[in-house]
Amino acid sequence: MILKDAGIPTDLSVFATIISSLIGCLIMGFWANAPVILTPGMGVNAFFTYTVVVAMGLSWQEALAISIVSSVIYVLIAFTKLSEILAKGIPDTLKAGITAGIGLFLVEIGLEKAQLIQQGKSSILALGDLTKPATLLALFGLLLTLFLFVRGITGGFFIGILVTSVVGILFGIKDQASPSVGIGDITKYSAIVAKGDFSNAVTIPFILAVFSMTMILVFESMGLLEGIMPNPKKFKKAFEASSVTSFLSGILGTSPTVAAAESASAIESGGRTGLTSIVAGLMFAASLFFIPLLAFVPQAAIAPVIIITGALMMNQLSRINMFDFSDWFPAFLIVVLIPFTSSISTGLAFGFVVYPILKIAAGRQSELTVATYVLGVLFLCDLVLSALL
């Protein structure tokens, strides 16, 4: 539904989502032997759509090209010592801020899709119309899903989507542009495969988008994997698996894959090896035969899951020392600027630029690494060039 806003046909991108997830989970399972699910990320797809396509005015084909180039750089980082240098050189407070900021962005997107917030007349945002059937359905779905989640009900997200969708059907609440596609339509899927448009690859907007997406892929994946991996020794190969799948997803016609925060639920349930990922991949494959059911799933049923997923990602705030202003404020900028500007790259840029400045101002240069200096300068150049365009 998010990629639809970028112009990628929903009826086709659903195949890209499933196939990239299937391949990603199998690579993660067999290569890294880690219980981590790889799927197009709920955060990087927002950057793909709302920053690259909507804000920057590029086509979805160019956005796919940007994803592919960014993923190639990601692969180079993952399979070299650069991954270890960045993992050790980037402060945990910034990593946590990235994950939390993307989480808050997802909450905003989920609230919009639930029509619980809207553009205000005298403010940036205002409460949505609570008399609309779709909004009331979303509220029902949110309360139900929250109840199931806090009760620890297995499959709570799925049950919430299912029940909310059934209620929507009973009351005639349906999205106008629901996908109407089945397994037989997979023959049309080639229309979005390998469609990356590299014609503007040497232009400033393209290069800036590549830099920003690379930073998102590397640091979001790094932050998530470090946060959920039960065995830290498997981080390197899991990071490599994530990078390869991210590259393949661009060719398959969707936004880059990342390690899903929902993997934590499988790990909490006892998942410790790649068998968890492999089983999830096979379930993705089975879902190809149930695509027609998506026509009965309104945005109001999906929005609660987006909201709760975003809230779960925000628990990374607990990793930030809020009593140290030089640590907290750069992360704070990342967290608030990502949703306020609808740009993940803008939030990252301000956080990475301000962090070394505050540390130097506090006379604590010893806490800075070469990586923080280099990234700070690169992000500063990114901000300057973006302002001049």
Rank of each mutant, 00 (worst) to 15 (best):
T93G: 15
G89N: 06
T99S: 14
K95P: 13
A100V: 03
Q118A: 07
G101R: 02
A114I: 03
F105D: 09
T93D: 15
I90E: 09
V107M: 04
A96P: 03
I98N: 12
P91F: 11
L104H: 02
S122F: 15
I109H: 02
I109F: 01
G120E: 07
T93Y: 12
K88G: 05
E108D: 10
K113M: 02
I98Q: 15
V107T: 04
Q119G: 05
L111V: 01
P91L: 11
E112C: 08
A100R: 11
G101K: 08
G120P: 01
S122K: 11
Q115Y: 11
G89V: 04
A100I: 11
K113E: 01
E108Q: 10
G89T: 10
T93V: 08
I90S: 15
K88D: 13
I98L: 14
T93L: 15
L111A: 01
L111W: 02
K88M: 14
L106F: 03
L106C: 05
I90Y: 09
S122N: 12
P91S: 15
P91A: 13
S122I: 12
E112M: 08
Q119P: 01
K113P: 02
Q119N: 09
G89S: 00
T99C: 09
E112S: 13
I90W: 02
G101L: 10
D92P: 06
G101H: 09
G120L: 00
F105I: 07
K88N: 05
I102P: 05
L116K: 09
G110F: 04
G103I: 02
L116S: 06
G101S: 13
L106M: 06
I90R: 08
Q115M: 15
L111T: 01
Q119M: 05
A114H: 07
A96F: 07
E108T: 06
G110P: 04
Q115A: 14
I102M: 11
Q115S: 14
K88C: 07
L94M: 08
A96T: 03
Q118D: 00
L111C: 02
L94G: 06
F105Y: 09
T93A: 14
A100F: 08
I90L: 03
Q118G: 04
V107A: 05
K88H: 14
I98G: 07
K113C: 06
A96L: 09
D92N: 15
